[in-house]
Amino acid sequence: MVRFLEGDGVFARYLALAVAIATLAAFDDAAAQTPNQPPDTMAARVEACTPCHGNRGEGTSDVYFPRLAGKPAGYLYNQLLAFRSGRRKYPPMNYLLEFLPDPYLEAMAEYFASEHPPLPPSAPSEVSKDVLAHGELLATSGDAGRNIPACVSCHGPGLTGMQPGIPGLLGLRANYISAQLGAWRYGTRTAKSPDCMQLVAGHLTEADVTAVAAWLATRPAPANPAPVPKGTYALPFGCGSQPN
């Protein structure tokens, strides 16, 4: 156990947190019955988030509101830090998070990471077969001639992401994916330096973005949507959000 903890600082922190939450959860039943107090649970504490992200982070019908459930906790935490400081911009969220401390944001990230509602059925696509084929090629093989690495080289062969910092790309809608890639291209979304996604998105054209977003949104849910453990494969180049 101790060796386990020494091995990986970040993981140890999440582990400690998970233990704390498990302990808390054990008291939940008792606490939930305290008269005139809201339930002492994370679910009650994140009710401010659920009209947009769904009760368990499964997403809502709004195509720009992303699913949170099951994404790596480290990734979600990085996003919450970026929204809190205003580096990633979405004013309603920037405002909600402004005065919340780090450990609380970690607990929120851990909460949504540990929820596993089913992925939504994949949407039928409105783009042509050729466009989908181009998207598939970029995602699975990239385009070496234009310095575009395959998306799977970082997001995983099953596109389910890797702990602790790389998100899966399934269960997201095309509008959301292309908005995010656009935000990286125009510099309104940035990640910890070196910001590898900025390098990737910088090489994509408008047409590439449409194609890859459309193809990703048509993928069926995999049997096991969980992100793979840290270090399962090596990244083509370094990402600040994915410490070695």
Partner: peptide, 9 residues
């Protein structure tokens, strides 16, 4: 009050 409850917009 390290983990305040929130209100949705």
């Amino acid at each position: 009050n390290p983990m305040p409850y929130g209100m949705p917009p």
